[in-house]
């Protein structure tokens, strides 16, 4: 098979995966939101409308149609390039989502940039030291990954803002919602996202590092007198690169989802905060839009990771 053909085939697989994910995620969002008690008509009327006016409002909003029809209608609008309108405020969904997309993208990027070196350092520490301290590092990673996100945020706020007064306790972005030029507002949420993710990925990759560490070629290198940093980067790292890239993809996806908790707690105006409040208001088109973006990021990330891992494996095997 030619390179072009295999590339086209890989592209086709990614596209099929993205489509399938979009269908499954949006259908799941519609089903989940309508399974919750109360709906957008209740949100709009605040419980103070008669059954008759509620029925009228549901008809106007199209909430009286069965679930599959509502989902079908939404799919049609999406395929026409229109994100639809909020059921709660009638505002175009794109107006709600677009300004927050940048804020969350920046936050996620900073968090991943912090998490990756931390995770690699932790993995090297856990995988290449003597068994006793390796176990300690692994336990540290497992414990770190198990701390609930809310606790991480609370502890960071108490320490970095309360005790040390280094950072503001909330991450309130200026009107317009751009985090550019306000790195001080990014530190707390990015750390809160990065630390548990790094602990998780570090623990996971520690095993891969340990396997590579005991591989014959590493023992050869040690016998030849290669030590320290050179041994780790030249002889160990190439063998954990492909699982590491996959782990980064999962970390990115995980970060995008934990952002909901962190953003809400710190008042950061991102997609996560919007998602939480949209679920509370039963605003299906908004929830579906945010869910869809998240799902597509995961699909794209996984595809990129697969591609990068393949390239790394090919280069390593041809060396």
């Amino acid at each position: 098979m030619s390179a072009a053909a295999s590339l086209a085939r890989a592209g086709g697989v990614v596209l099929a995966r993205a489509t399938a994910t979009a269908v499954v995620v949006s259908a799941a969002v519609f089903a989940a939101v309508s399974a919750l008690p109360s709906d957008a008509a209740d949100t709009r009327t605040g419980g103070r409308a008669s059954a008759e006016t509620l029925a009228q409002l549901r008809e106007t909003l199209g909430l009286d149609a069965p679930l599959w029809q509502r989902w079908g209608r939404w799919t049609t609008t999406i395929l026409n390039g229109d994100w639809g309108r909020s059921l709660v405020t009638d505002r175009p969904v794109v107006d709600l989502v677009a300004p927050r997309l940048q804020a969350t993208a920046v936050l996620t990027a900073v968090a991943v940039a912090l998490a990756v070196p931390l995770a690699l350092a932790l993995a090297l520490a856990a995988g290449t030291t003597r068994p006793r301290s390796a176990r300690r590092w692994a336990a540290f990673a497992t414990a770190g990954a198990a701390v609930p996100q809310t606790v991480v945020v609370a502890v960071l706020v108490v320490v970095l803002s309360g005790l040390l007064s280094w950072l503001p306790p909330l991450s309130l972005l200026p009107p317009g919602g751009s985090p550019a030029g306000r790195p001080d507002l990014l530190v707390l949420p990015a750390l809160a996202l990065a630390l548990p993710a790094a602990a998780w990925a570090g623990g996971l990759l520690g095993g891969a590092v340990a396997d590579a560490w005991s591989a014959p070629h590493v023992r050869d290198a040690v016998a030849r007198g290669v030590t320290g940093w050179r041994l780790r980067t030249r002889h160990v790292l190439p063998f954990v690169l492909s699982p590491a890239i996959r782990a980064v993809a999962v970390v990115t996806a995980g970060t995008a989802t934990s952002a909901a908790v962190v953003e809400t707690m710190l008042g950061y105006q991102g997609l996560g905060e919007l998602l939480v409040t949209a679920v509370a208001g039963r605003d299906t088109p908004v929830v579906a839009a945010v869910g869809l973006i998240g799902a597509l990021v995961v699909v794209a990330g996984t595809a990129l990771a697969d591609l990068a891992a393949a390239v790394v494996e090919v280069r390593r095997d041809h060396r």
Binding site: D90, T277, A278
Partner: peptide, 19 residues
């Protein structure tokens, strides 16, 4: 001014529920 309100229910319509 930090006021009561949520991202998803913020509206430009002054004739609704003012929730």
């Amino acid at each position: 001014y930090a006021a009561v309100g949520s991202a998803a229910t913020a509206s430009n319509d002054p004739h609704g529920g003012l929730g």
